[in-house]
Simulated scan of single mutants.
Amino acid sequence: MKIGKIEVKDEVFNVRVKKHVLWEVVKWQLSSRRQGTHSTKTRGELGYSGRKLLPQKGTGNARHGDRGANILVGGGVAHGPKPRDYSYSLPKKVKKLALKMALSDKAQNKSILIVDTIELGDVPKTKNALEFLKKNKIDSEKVLIVTPQKDEVIYKSFRNLPNAKVLPVEGLNVYDILWSDKLVIHKDALEGIYKRVEA
């Protein structure tokens, strides 16, 4: 398969896409990102006195125990959330397959651009990043730029643009690929992508 003038591997960029596999991996990714720090207090954790609110009988009111009961306003929460870890494991095979499928989806929709260089000068400048996007006619789309390794100049030049993300090959993931409208891959990053999905 060819993208532009560059020949790419069919087993990475021309795989049959199965939506369910992509969904499974995106769900796993987003679950791993969840902080899980939510917490509510049970009736046992509140600072109220445990004194009985009113006598059990003879007042004509409903029976009540202490002030922290969950049916009262300001009382504890019954079955509320507690801090927990939402992450779970997924087979490596599935993760690699989903990465291939996400790349194939972009390739089949002609949404991949492979560039020889990303020339932005020696100092990070958002202006240079915008010029790069305009030159390639992708300034109005959500763009994911894949570099061979972490590059501070490229990363800092694009970080103020809400519709652009920069990732080194080792950080490439299904969620960010599917988020983007256009995938810009540095030519030297291709080898790293092959290693990621074939290792």
Rank of each mutant, 00 (worst) to 15 (best):
I154M: 00
T42S: 11
S32M: 13
P83I: 03
Y48M: 02
K195Q: 12
K41F: 13
R43N: 02
N109W: 05
K18G: 10
L103I: 11
E141T: 13
I114F: 02
D10N: 15
N136L: 07
K106T: 08
P81D: 07
T40G: 06
R51L: 09
K182L: 09
K93A: 14
K187D: 01
T37V: 11
D188M: 03
S180D: 09
S39N: 13
S140C: 15
R16I: 14
D176Q: 05
D139C: 04
D10G: 10
P162A: 11
I154A: 00
E45A: 13
M101W: 04
K95E: 04
F132H: 03
R16P: 12
Y48K: 03
L103T: 10
Q35A: 10
V174W: 00
L54E: 11
G47R: 15
H20N: 13
A69N: 13
S157V: 08
I177F: 01
K137R: 11
K57E: 07
T117A: 12
L30C: 05
V25D: 01
A69W: 07
S111C: 12
H186I: 03
V94D: 10
G47P: 12
K106C: 10
K182A: 14
V166R: 02
R67K: 06
Q149K: 09
L90V: 07
D176L: 02
E152K: 15
